[in-house]
């Protein structure tokens, strides 16, 4: 038995001052990265995790980095969501990410939680995952090799391996998220269906479009909540590519989403509803994405 009022598990805690120190600590048995704590403490309180050591990374200067230069947005692993939601760069250039962050939890949660934490928790319904996937984000992973810090970069779409599971190996941590600058004439948007406004998604999605004149040159669409991990729905992406959008054609393309999904029924919704509404959500999210790419208003023809 456990209790959400109190933690009885014994663990040690270290507030790392450098990445080296953090990585060294993370190599120990039962060590966990501790940033906002909003997911990890709940796991501990509900006895779904029993760490031996929490490595608080929020004091590490180099992980607090936030920069936008040379066509790339860099977000350090210690950057909190509330910092990002007010950032002009994100509001203006990455509106789908902005929308996802605003829809995530409450002010209090966003004041604590980090973007990297939202990804590392690897929930199939992590709100920030679909937009970052369609922006082609990459995850920077660090580990200690002897005493040297080694980094590897992997695409976010290869990061998740299952519910709550990622490619991270023991001793590794995500140190940053890199998001390339969206190309000209592209646009993206985020959509979510949930029980109430402040809620985990039943289904969420992000649509990214590259426009050429009145045609969709390329589409990237990611859906969360309808498979063990957030997924890119290639069937729909392919169907949209080269399309001159009309309401009907978008619907037809979005309806293909079911072929890329494998949702389950749980306390929040049913598998059937998730599949059905995923296509509605994609269609609804297409319109603002198209508009942001500079596309003309879509008519019903």
């Amino acid at each position: 038995m456990s209790s959400s009022r109190i933690i009885t598990q014994d663990f040690d805690y270290i507030k790392a001052v450098s990445l080296g120190e953090a990585l060294e600590s993370l190599a120990k048995d039962g060590a966990r990265v501790f940033a906002g704590g909003t997911d990890l403490l709940n796991k501990i309180k509900t006895a779904r995790d029993n760490p031996k050591l929490l490595v608080d990374i929020t004091g590490i200067e180099e992980l607090k980095g936030f920069s936008f230069s040379e066509g790339c947005l860099l977000i350090g692993a210690a950057v909190r969501l509330s910092f990002l939601e007010d950032e002009k760069v994100i509001t203006e250039r990455y509106p789908a990410l902005h929308e996802a962050i605003k829809s995530l939890g409450s002010v209090q949660i966003r004041n604590m939680a980090t973007l990297a934490g939202n990804l590392c928790n690897a929930s199939p319904i992590a709100d920030t995952a679909p937009p970052l996937m369609v922006y082609d984000a990459e995850v920077e992973i660090s580990r200690l090799h002897n005493t040297r810090i080694e980094k590897r970069i992997i695409s976010l779409k290869d990061f998740f391996t299952g519910p709550g599971q990622t490619v991270l190996q023991k001793g590794e941590m995500v140190t940053g998220v890199r998001v390339p600058e969206p190309m000209a004439s592209s646009g993206a948007a985020f959509g979510k269906i949930a029980r109430v406004t402040m809620d985990l998604a039943k289904v969420n999605c992000a649509v990214w479009l590259k426009r050429e004149e009145a045609v969709v040159a390329e589409a990237r669409i990611a859906v969360g909540g309808a498979a063990p991990v957030p997924v890119r729905v290639e069937k729909v992406e392919k169907a949209l590519a080269g399309m001159r959008p009309s309401s009907k054609r978008i619907s037809q393309a979005a309806a293909l989403v079911g072929e890329n999904l494998s949702p389950i029924s749980d306390v929040r919704s049913t598998a059937k509803y998730r599949t059905d509404t995923a296509s509605v959500l994609i269609r609804d999210t297409f319109f603002p994405a198209w508009k942001r790419s500079g596309g003309e208003e879509i008519t019903d023809e």
């Binding site: 029980r195 406004t197 749980d266 306390v267």
Partner: peptide, 17 residues
């Protein structure tokens, strides 16, 4: 309980709803 007793999955309408 399928909500495991957590308010995460016992939802109530909020001010925005």
């Amino acid at each position: 309980l399928t909500n495991l007793g957590l308010l995460t999955d016992y939802k109530m309408l909020g001010p925005e709803d």
